[in-house]
Write a protein that binds this DNA or RNA. Structure first.
Lengths: 354, 354
DNA sequence: CTGTTAGCGCGTTCAA
DNA sequence: TTGAACGCGCTAACAG
């Protein structure tokens, strides 16, 4: 059997309370006594039973996830993952709630953060918008001792504790590299469809993509960015106009949402041979891959991001280790052939690590 | 606060013991009493605290992972993931041990399975070899009530409870599709380097790859399979000879291990423009991607597989739900641009879900 | 500074 | 068929 607090108390010749004080780094223990206890811990190879500890302390950790509302399928999948995680974390004495805010709205986001802080939560996860008032709100949370992680889109200039998301510059580079390889010698410029340059993930992807396109051995012209606000209707109109305007277009890189509009415009135009790369495996992009309209989809695993955020927030709230640096999220590449079966539960279209 | 057994006992007007009997479906409760309790459970929305339950019952679940020995980097990474998981699952009252067997050795594997069963374990995870005696051993484990999952390589004809690994036919198809796209109009046959056709994962990958190569719109010739036994030295020799024999070779698909030999042979030969696709992100394939010798690497997340195996085995040992069908493992695609930073802990070269 | 004691939510004897 | 009492490993009051 594994050694318990009793064993180490006996072995060190002290009482359980003293052992507990040492374990939890609480004051009121002489250095000599502490050394004895620590020796016993080392000697017996003691590791504390976290479940029992949580059970005993009874404290619960309230976390808040702030997620953009609206019909963006990726965000809806993200929210579904959060709701699914709620059940799984109860044993960890963690309770999660979700708050929705209008997309791209810095003011609303800042207000939501302040409200959560006022609500005495232990930690906050939010999809950041790049604006000074958001930075201020995050810094206020930090000042109040509330753990904070940015989700999907980062805000490195703030005092957030961690970023749960992909390296979006690398994602853009990946898209560029695939586009270049798929196009080969084919001539023509490429278009970029984005949501808004006011979120960091979009602007970072663009910079990575543009960099590859400009590099030696590629040298392909990138047209002006089309900003569709992640709205399918606007995206469709922008893409349709672009297709009409540039008959020689070789490819389209869609780095935001609103992909339902993109796919619709492409279907209507019927332009085989056009290389299309999009982000996030959602119902529209999945359909595009299956029909052959979309060549590749870059993806981030929302479930992984959510679980990572929970772990980091809990650790921070507990004052635990300086956050596991291993929480890096992969940039997934999907083509028609490695498309995973859809997940009926979350709609994220991905089988997920439980 | 969440309702506890006390609450539902009070609400139902019975004692805790009765509530417990109902919760654990034990006999000795009148139908009427049971109904009252179930009504209370429903009414209060009670969910049992698994951590506390495990703490109370004190039972511990011994699991065994049987993994091929030798220098196959993927297998070593897999084992590292298992060892890393050991610490994390102690709170779950699960203890894991690792057993090594010679690779591709059906007899040794069957013996190891029998030994584990004799050792009264709760569950076994093993990398299967395709042989009747292995099927028999798995079926014996099943008969003894020991949960069994195949890991990485399946044996669907046995009575294993679950397979923790990727769809290898789809992985082969993915490789084929990427190869076709990367090659474009370039002429020439492609070679396939495998470990052994006696493990299902290798043979399935080959069939998927060959199918795509034979399909309309591709029609590329696939040379006879080179079987390198996942040994770098043999692999190197085989590839070197093949390169010499076929100057017009367009690509190589390496679907097994031994990739250190493949990369070495390619470096020595210096054949730019050759499209190379390999499996599993390990030190040699990572180096190949970084140097540009390898174009793409298909990967399965060993950490994910291990954690999934543990969850499934635990659930089965507890007689829980008929196994979450959601435990599907993704086929990851890596190119130079989306290469994750190496993980110093496991050597699996992947940031991993903790 | 240190030790005693009473739970946390649940499972499991034993009696009734 | 039912109930009371104890313990799992740990934390947190309170004493000393």
């Amino acid at each position: 059997m594994r050694p318990t607090v009793h064993d180490i108390a006996a072995s060190a010749g002290v009482s359980l309370a003293t052992v507990d004080r040492v374990l939890n780094a609480r004051p009121g223990v002489r250095a000599v006594t502490r050394a004895k206890v620590e020796a016993a811990i080392e000697r017996l190879g003691y590791v504390r039973d976290v479940a029992a500890a949580n059970l005993a302390k009874g404290r619960i950790y309230p976390l808040v996830f702030i997620i953009p509302e609206g019909e963006n399928p990726f965000m809806r999948g993200l929210e579904a993952e959060v709701r699914q995680a709620m059940d799984r974390v109860t044993f960890d004495r963690t309770s999660i709630s979700v708050v929705n805010v209008p997309p791209f709205d810095a003011h609303a986001l800042a207000a939501a953060i302040d409200a959560a802080v006022a609500g005495e939560v232990a930690g906050i996860a939010a999809v950041a918008v790049d604006a000074p008032e958001v930075v201020d709100a995050i810094d206020r949370a930090h000042a109040e001792g509330v753990a904070f992680v940015t989700l999907v889109s980062d805000l490195a200039s703030s005092r957030r504790d961690h970023f749960c998301g992909v390296d979006n510059v690398a994602a853009g580079r990946t898209a560029g590299s695939l586009m270049a390889r798929f196009l080969g010698d084919r001539e023509g410029p490429v278009a970029v469809l984005a949501g808004s340059m006011r979120v960091r993930d979009h602007s970072e992807r663009l910079s990575g993509f543009s960099a590859v396109m400009a590099e030696a051995g590629c040298g392909r012209h990138v047209l002006d960015v089309l900003e569709g606000q992640d709205d399918p209707v606007r995206a469709r109109a922008l893409v349709a106009r672009c297709l009409a305007e540039f008959p020689g277009l070789a490819g389209i890189y869609s780095l935001g949402a609103g992909n339902a509009g993109l796919v619709a415009a492409l279907e209507a135009a019927g332009r085989p041979g056009l290389c299309v790369i999009a982000h996030e495996l959602t119902p529209p992009t999945r359909a595009g891959l299956e029909s052959g309209i979309v060549d590749a989809v870059l993806h981030q695993d929302a479930g992984h991001e959510v679980r990572s955020a929970i772990r980091v927030l809990r650790a921070k709230a507990d004052g635990m280790k300086p956050v596991a640096a291993q929480e890096r999220i992969r940039i997934d590449i999907f083509i028609k052939e490695n498309l995973p079966p859809p997940d009926p539960e979350t709609g994220t279209a991905l089988a997920g690590e439980g």
